[in-house]
Amino acid sequence: MEIFSIMMLISLMIFSISISLIKSLLGSIIVFTVYSLVMAILWQQLNAPDLAITEAAVGAGITTILFIFTLKRMRPDHSNHSDNKE
C-alpha cells in the first residue's frame, strides 16, 4: 500500500504541473478533476475519511460544474478568435 501512495503522490505532482502547462482550458479542467479524485483516495489512505468525502463532493463535483459553466459562458465572446490562443 505504500507503493500505491507514493505512485499517487508522484502523479499528483505531474497533474499539478500539467494543469498550468496545458493550452486547452477544457483539458486543464478535466486534469483538475482527476487531481481532486486522486487526492480523495489519498486522504482515505491517510486515515481521514471525512476529508475524503468532502474532497470528492466539492473538488470533483461542484467545482468541476462551476468551471465548465464558466467556460461555457466565456466561449461566445472569443468565438471569432482562435480557440487555442488563450
Partner: peptide, 17 residues
C-alpha cells in the same frame, strides 16, 4: 461516522444541479 453537514449538503446540491 465520517461525514457531516457540509459534505452531505454538497452531495445533495450536486444532485439538484
Amino acid at each position: 461516522s465520517p461525514g457531516g453537514g457540509f459534505a452531505g449538503g454538497t452531495i445533495i446540491a450536486s444532485s439538484l444541479v
